[in-house]
């Protein structure tokens, strides 16, 4: 469990963590687009190679589909991270309001003067609970989307091995198709690195959140 000294700073850290995910994934989007273009080039080489690259042709379709799926996931994550970031901002503001309302209660000398105010405090508490639920729900969804990209990348690792095998059988086209396999392998590694970073940010945000809730 993360330990926090200052609740407000921790809230800010959560906000930064979820917002950084979107930025981190913009790099993944760029790479996925490159994979998609690479798949189209590979398709052209495989077409020229004809029978010599027969096994390579269905793989290029698979790579393209996988790249497009990754792009769709990244776009969804981008939107979701933005929503989580907005909810987080609202939560920070509502929490700030709650702190200040409690400050008001502390300052008012006669409890009878707070009668009309009690409803306000109750409403803010209810709003905060609703925001927290929404935040947790969205964060779980983000984690699922990141898992989905990870699955794509596991599949892509297997594809890049098949690529290499099929490239080795493609005679004079071996080098060109070998480059496709290399590029795919490198791109997958870079995407995995970014997704890992995103997952780590997400877990950090989740841990901090739990610590804030417990405080």
């Amino acid at each position: 469990m993360a330990r926090i000294k200052d609740e407000r700073l921790a809230e800010g850290e959560v906000l930064v963590s979820v917002t950084v995910i979107a930025a981190e994934l913009s790099e993944v989007m760029k790479i996925a687009k490159e994979i998609s273009i690479g798949a189209k080039n590979a398709k052209a080489i495989a077409a020229r190679a004809g029978d010599k690259a027969r096994g390579f042709q269905p793989i290029t379709n698979f790579i393209d589909d996988m790249a497009r799926h990754t792009l769709t996931m990244v776009r969804q994550i981008d939107q979701e991270a933005l929503s989580v970031s907005r909810i987080c901002s609202q939560e920070i503001r509502t929490n700030d309001a709650k702190r200040r309302m409690h400050d008001v209660i502390r300052r008012v000398e006669h409890p009878s003067l707070l009668k009309s105010f009690q409803g306000v405090v109750t409403d803010i508490d209810a709003r905060l609970i609703a925001l927290r639920r929404e935040f947790d729900k969205r964060l779980d969804h983000l984690a699922e989307l990141l898992d989905s990209i990870n699955s794509d990348m596991r599949a892509a690792t297997a594809i890049s091995s098949s690529c290499r095998v099929e490239a080795s059988r493609a005679e004079e086209f071996r080098e060109g198709l070998g480059v496709v396999a290399d590029n795919l392998e490198q791109a997958v590694e870079v995407i995995k690195k970014h997704v890992k970073e995103c997952s780590s940010r997400l877990q950090h945000a989740q841990r901090l959140k739990q610590a804030i809730y417990k405080k």
Partner: peptide
């Protein structure tokens, strides 16, 4: 000054007012 202001205001009027 929000908290001080609201606390001071509640000594004169209710929130609903």
């Amino acid at each position: 000054i929000f908290s001080s202001m609201l606390a001071a205001t509640l000594h004169h009027v209710s929130v609903d007012q």
